[in-house]
């Protein structure tokens, strides 16, 4: 058995492969409830994580010809990412558990030797109270770093802090 190849940083020049249309997961004509997922990514100095990117993946709605389930947004000079996608529904967890609606997040950039993984949940979802991941995080303040808040109709904000005060919970997957 050969071990999985090592990760290396995506570096500051990944924009050579950037296609801005990837930030809109509805571009192939998906029908249903569209949402915006946006926020700022901040480093340990409180400075914008300006040369990275945010990728998202969701298991629901299921990927299809009209919905890739995957998107990528540049993080702009102010640290902001901005994605348009479909509102996910609940998906099965392990055993008999149900997972609250969520979007998987992958953060890449200069200074990250391996991508960081986290999730966006949605404030106000009843299933948040029993979600296996959320309930496995004991401190409410830490748990809250995974919950996007509803800023405006259809607009969900999740700020991501890489290091220090109010640091986002990152996942070992």
């Amino acid at each position: 058995m050969t071990a999985a190849t090592a990760s290396q940083t995506i570096g500051p020049y990944w924009h050579l492969i950037e296609d801005k249309s990837w930030a809109d997961l509805t571009r192939f004509g998906a029908e249903g409830e569209r949402i915006v997922l946006t926020g700022a990514v901040i480093d340990g100095d409180g400075a914008p994580f300006a040369d990275g990117c945010v990728e998202i993946w969701q298991a629901d709605p299921p990927a299809s010809d009209s919905f890739p389930g995957f998107g990528r947004s540049v993080i702009d000079r102010y640290g902001n990412y901005h994605l348009v996608t479909m509102k996910p529904g609940p998906v099965p967890g392990r055993g008999n558990a149900q997972q609250a609606p969520h979007i998987a997040i992958c953060i890449l950039g200069r200074g990250l030797m391996h991508h960081l993984v986290t999730r966006a949940y949605f404030d106000g979802e009843t299933l948040n109270a029993t979600d296996p991941l959320l309930t496995s995080i004991e401190e409410p303040a830490r748990r809250a770093t995974l919950i996007a808040r509803n800023d405006a109709p259809g607009v969900w904000r999740l700020d991501i802090r890489l290091q220090g005060g109010n640091e986002t919970v990152f996942l070992d997957i």
């Binding site: 400075a47 960081l116 890489l162 640091e167 990152f170 070992d172």
Partner: peptide, 16 residues
Amino acid sequence: KRHPRHSLHKLPHTIT
């Protein structure tokens, strides 16, 4: 300034 100080939180794999 870009690495988390907390250890990563273990997540058993789900369909996601």
